[in-house]
Design a protein around this nucleic acid. Structure first.
Length: 220
DNA sequence: CACCAGGCAAGTA
DNA sequence: TACTTGCATGGT
């Protein structure tokens, strides 16, 4: 199984090149973006991020001192704005109360410890926690999302009822433990998912798809 | 008009 | 454990 996953990666990288993830200016922005993008199109998240930036609120100190109602108004374009305001506040509370408001102190925790801390924040689930681990803390953790599951399922690589942990274990036990590889691979899967695997189950245009629907690694 | 997007938590049986 | 529902805007 090591070879197929690496072969798929190489194929995608050859076709699409580096994706430059995560699109953010700072680890703090990665974390806020990770919460805002929950079940939400990235284009809408960008509007919310821009609003926060224009109001100088994309920092721990300024955002901590901002009333929830104002945050909610500014992040409105990203949807679920009341919910997400609370989730961002939950993260800020954790950082301020347990890590003296020092983001580096939080991000330098051991990978396993950090994952548990993040999952303990209400509103931070496995994908959000792992996105923060990989793209803000640069830890070698593979991020699983709906596209990853859909693509692998349609190509017959996994069973439909595989859960988050099954998928993460599949990638991490069959690929070298390389933060740069995990970073690029997840970004490429999202790219392919957005571009080819939206509706049609056949996925005929997907660059991974051979005539039988399974990955055609000799294609291209 | 309907459907979907880089999820998560709470409620029900 | 295994479903179901609420959360909400903006693009196609």
């Amino acid at each position: 199984m090591r070879k197929p996953l690496l072969a798929i990666y190489k194929k995608l990288y050859r076709q699409f090149g580096p994706q430059k993830w995560w699109p953010a200016d700072s680890p703090f922005e990665v974390i806020v973006g990770a919460i805002l993008t929950q079940n939400t199109a990235w284009a809408n998240v960008e509007k919310a991020i821009k609003n926060l930036k224009q109001n100088k609120l994309l920092s721990l100190k300024t955002l901590s001192d901002t009333k929830p109602s104002r945050i909610a108004r500014l992040i409105k374009p990203s949807g679920y704005y009341n919910l997400k305001t609370g989730r961002i506040k939950n993260f800020l509370d954790c950082l301020n109360d347990r890590f003296e408001g020092d983001l580096n102190k939080l991000l330098k925790q051991k990978t396993g410890d950090l994952r548990k801390i993040l999952l303990g924040i209400k509103g931070v689930g496995p994908e959000t926690a792992d996105s923060i681990l990989l793209y803000a803390a640069n830890k070698p953790i593979f991020v699983i999302d709906a596209y990853t599951k859909r693509i692998l399922s349609r190509h017959g690589i996994i069973k439909k009822d595989s859960d988050y942990n099954d998928l993460q274990y599949l990638f991490m036990s069959n690929l070298p433990k390389d933060e740069k590889l995990y970073n690029e691979y997840h970004a490429l899967l999202v790219r392919v998912g957005k571009e080819f695997c939206k509706k049609k189950p056949e996925c005929r245009l997907c660059p991974l798809g051979g005539p039988d629907g399974k990955p055609d690694l000799n294609f291209c």
